[in-house]
Simulated assay, not measured.
Amino acid sequence: MTLLQLAQPFGRPEARSADEPAKPGDVLVTRHQSFTGETAAPSEHPSDPPFFVDWLSLYQSHELDLPVIDDGQVIGVDTAGELVWKTCRKKRLAGSFETSVAIRCDGHTVTFEGNVSRFGRTNNLWGFSLTECIRRVNDLLAKLGLPPFTMGRKSWRPVKCHQGGSMLNTGDIQEQWTGARLTRIDLTANYGAGSIGDARAYMEWLATQQHSARVKVDTHADGETVDWGRGSRRIYAKCYLKSAELRRHGAPDDLVQYCDDQGVIRFELTLKSTQLIAMGCQYLGSLDMEQLELLFEERRAVMGRAEHTHDDLADLPNHLRRTARDYLAGDDIAARMKKVTFWRHRKGLLPYGLDIAVKRNVIDFKPRVRVIELRALAAPPWYEFDERKAA
């Protein structure tokens, strides 16, 4: 079955009454089939929880002669100097606040990748719905004289296999779409622990939680980031302290302070090409938001184990905590530390009721159960989604 002509641009499906006969390969866009959950034009506002979208990677081929947009070409030649292959390098499109995205067009296929919710903004503490992200990407493409990414139309083709040196039909059919194809999408949400102290204590505990036997947990940046599945070709998830990340990137002080006060923890779920194909969500037209929400909630479930054992030593500064734990475990601290370090640590621990100069400390540090309740955060009224200086 041949591919059909490209449909209307994304978010604006071609209207047709239920009584009108269907065209070959045409499909009505219903609330179930539409990944935005609506058939109206893209919203001007970000999506409600459970997530918004950060990074998008997608491409679409056209039967048109389009402007070539690249940053030069990379070629491969054989030993005789004959051209074997060539590919266009992605062109970086710069936005305000030292942000950029990558766009490439070889004359027929348009490729985009980048953090749409961050582009042209001082921060992406809150981002946009998938519908809004695609609208923003299409605005960028229009400025470059390129056609928009579309949902396209659905068609089916026979599934073939190799047998006896030839290709034979298996009798099965496979769905395909004429529009844009996704290779990566990042789903993101913010949660509040109530304070930066509770957020740090929560991250310490989270670092002990594996998602499953095959998906290992790991920590980075002195415990500020906890992730699962790093290097996976399918799914990668991570949690991190948002104030620390904003501070490193020079975000406004009031925004950093807000994240500290609220104890903001960011959860991000990256779905890569292999996972999108397995879910049947590799095409923009076939993307099922219900599946994405179910997977997001499944991977986020590890954050729901919010009750954990916490002892008073967790309140100590990081450089004193190990010394205190070793001392209470019976280690001879004075024998393994330099004198100057030993007395400096002793001075730092005295206000907490620990004197490591005493051979045995009679103070009993009993573990207690501490419950940290995470709550989904919505953007406060003062938060600006479209900053005046943004491109």
Rank of each mutant, 00 (worst) to 15 (best):
1 M>L: 08
2 T>I: 12
3 L>Y: 09
4 L>K: 12
10 F>W: 07
10 F>T: 03
11 G>M: 01
15 A>L: 09
16 R>L: 06
17 S>H: 13
17 S>T: 13
19 D>E: 13
19 D>W: 11
31 R>F: 10
34 S>I: 01
35 F>H: 13
39 T>V: 11
44 E>L: 14
46 P>M: 03
48 D>L: 10
58 L>P: 01
62 H>V: 00
64 L>Q: 14
66 L>K: 07
68 V>Q: 13
80 A>M: 12
80 A>S: 14
81 G>N: 05
91 K>W: 11
92 R>V: 01
93 L>R: 12
93 L>W: 06
99 T>P: 04
111 T>Q: 11
113 E>L: 11
114 G>H: 06
117 S>T: 11
121 R>W: 04
133 C>R: 02
133 C>M: 08
139 D>F: 04
143 K>R: 15
152 G>V: 06
156 W>P: 00
157 R>E: 09
160 K>I: 05
163 Q>H: 10
163 Q>I: 02
167 M>L: 15
168 L>C: 08
168 L>E: 13
170 T>E: 10
173 I>R: 13
179 G>I: 02
179 G>R: 03
182 L>D: 03
185 I>N: 02
188 T>P: 00
191 Y>F: 15
191 Y>K: 11
192 G>V: 09
194 G>I: 05
197 G>N: 15
198 D>F: 01
215 V>F: 00
217 V>M: 02
224 E>S: 15
225 T>P: 00
225 T>S: 14
230 R>C: 03
231 G>V: 03
238 K>Y: 09
238 K>R: 15
244 A>C: 06
248 R>K: 14
249 H>A: 13
250 G>D: 12
255 L>Y: 02
258 Y>N: 01
264 V>T: 15
268 E>L: 07
271 L>N: 01
272 K>A: 02
274 T>Y: 09
274 T>P: 02
275 Q>W: 07
278 A>V: 02
284 L>I: 11
289 M>Y: 14
292 L>I: 02
293 E>T: 15
295 L>T: 06
297 E>C: 04
298 E>H: 13
311 D>M: 03
315 D>Q: 09
316 L>H: 04
317 P>H: 09
319 H>D: 14
320 L>T: 10
323 T>C: 13
324 A>N: 02
326 D>K: 11
328 L>R: 08
328 L>P: 00
329 A>M: 08
333 I>D: 03
335 A>D: 11
336 R>S: 14
341 T>A: 14
345 H>W: 08
345 H>E: 14
349 L>A: 06
353 G>H: 12
354 L>S: 01
359 K>T: 09
362 V>P: 00
364 D>G: 03
366 K>L: 13
368 R>L: 06
372 I>K: 01
375 R>D: 03
377 L>I: 14
380 P>W: 05
385 F>E: 00
385 F>P: 02
388 R>L: 11
